[in-house]
Design a protein around this nucleic acid. Structure first.
Lengths: 203, 203
DNA sequence: GGACGAAATGGACCTACTGTCCAGCATGCG
DNA sequence: CGCATGCTGGACAGTAGGTCCATTTCGTCC
C-alpha cells in the first residue's frame, strides 16, 4: 500500500533469477517471495524478530496466508533463507578482498566492517531483536573458520578454540557496538582500532 | 542463608526468606515458588528456554496452572527473577575477591570463571538455548561496568565504548566456549590464558 | 491468442499456548 | 481453633501456527 516505488533502500535479499538451465522460476513465485521477504524485513526492523507474526507478514505483503506456507515452512525458514543472501555476499566480499589484501593480519575485518555498513538496515534488524547471537550465528561460524585458518597459517600452534573464540567474540562485540551506535566512524577506522587491540592487546 | 551446600544439587535460585522486618513469607508460597523455579530450571536444561511452556513447568512442579500466575506474570518474569539470584551472587563473589586481589589487571575474570564453573548447570541452561546473549545480557552489563571502571582507573583515556565492548565480548565468548566444552581446564588456567590474550593480544 | 497447468486465494478446521476469572477446597498462621 | 490466605481445576476468550481444499487467477508455452 505505501511502498514507494523507486526508493533506494537496501534489503537483505538479492537477485532471484538463476539464469541457469533449470526450470526458470515462474514470475508469480518470484514476485510473491520478494513481497514476503520485503515485508518480513521491514517488520523485523520495526518490532524485532520474535514479535513479528506470519499473519502480519502476509498482510503487509498483500499475500494470502496459505500462500506463505507454499513457499516457506515457517518464520524460521524465511529468516534462514533471507540470511543466506547476506552470507554469500559476505563470502564474495571477502574473497574479492583476499586477493589484493592477503598480507595483513586479519584480512577479513575490513571486509566485514564495510559489508556491515553497506547493509546497515539488515544488520540492525538482526541485531536489534535478540542481541546478535541468534540471527548472526551463521556469520559467526564463517568468521570462526576464517580465524582458525588464519591462526593455523601463521604457524601459531595456537589455533586453539579458546583463541578463536576470543578473536571472533571480540570482533562481533565491537561490530555490534559500532552498529548500535549508528556506525558513525568509518569502516577503515574501526578496522585499524580493532586490529590494534587484537594484535597488541589493551596493555 | 543459602541452600544447604551439601545437597549436591545446584540450582539458580538461592535464599528466599528476607529475614527483615517485613511480612515474612507464607510457607506455602515459598514451597510453590521453589517448586516452580526448580521445574523451570530443569526443563530449561532439557529443551531450552523457548521450548518450555508454562503448562509443562506447572506439570513438572505439580502445581496448578492458575497458581503460576499468582506468583509470576509469565515465563519471562520467572526467568528474570531466577537470574537475579545469579546476579547478586556474582557481585558478592567479585566484591569478596576484589579486596584481596585488586592489583591484577582485570580482577573480575577469575571470579567469573569460578562462579561459572560452580554454577555450571545454570550457565549451561542459559547458554544452551539461545546462545548467550539473551539471558546473559544482564551479566554482560555488569561486566561492562567493571571493565569501564577498570580502564578509566588505569589512566587509559581509552575508556571508549569500543574497547569496553572488545574486552567484554572477548570474555563472554571465551567463557561460553569453555563452558560448552565442558569446562575441562581449571578456572585459573582460563584466567591466565584470557589475561594474556587481552593484555598482549594474539601477536 | 488460446489452452493448459501451476500458483494464489481465502476460508474452514484443528491444535497448542497464553492469560483471566472464579467457586470451592486445604492449610499455615496467630 | 477459626479465619485469612493460598491452592486448585476447570471454564473461557484470544491469538498464533499449520494443514487442506475448492475455486479463481494468471504465466507459460505452443
Amino acid at each position: 500500500m505505501t511502498e514507494r516505488p523507486g526508493d533506494g533502500h537496501q534489503h537483505m535479499h538479492g537477485a532471484h533469477g538463476q539464469e541457469a538451465n533449470l526450470p526458470a522460476i515462474d514470475r508469480r513465485v518470484a514476485r510473491t517471495r520478494t513481497k514476503l521477504e520485503r515485508a518480513f524485513f521491514h517488520l523485523m526492523q520495526e518490532k524485532g524478530y520474535d514479535a513479528v507474526t506470519i499473519h502480519e507478514i502476509c498482510d503487509r505483503a498483500g499475500v494470502g496466508r496459505s500462500t506463505f506456507y507454499t513457499h516457506f515452512t515457517g518464520k524460521d525458514d524465511l529468516k534462514r533463507r533471507s540470511l543466506e543472501y547476506l552470507r554469500v555476499e559476505l563470502l564474495e566480499s571477502h574473497a574479492r578482498l583476499k586477493t589484493t589484501d592477503d598480507l595483513r593480519p586479519f584480512g577479513f575485518t575490513l571486509a566485514m566492517f564495510e559489508h556491515a555498513r553497506r547493509h546497515l538496515p539488515a544488520y540492525r534488524a538482526l541485531i536489534g531483536s535478540e542481541g546478535l547471537s541468534v540471527s548472526l550465528g551463521s556469520i559467526r561460524d564463517i568468521l570462526a573458520d576464517l580465524v582458525r585458518a588464519e591462526l593455523k597459517g601463521r604457524g601459531k600452534a595456537d589455533g586453539r578454540d579458546t583463541t578463536v573464540a576470543f578473536v571472533v567474540g571480540a570482533f562481533m562485540a565491537v561490530m555490534t557496538q559500532w552498529l548500535d551506535d549508528g556506525a558513525k566512524t568509518t569502516p577503515a577506522e574501526m578496522d585499524t582500532h580493532f586490529r590494534r587491540l587484537i594484535e597488541h592487546g589493551v596493555g
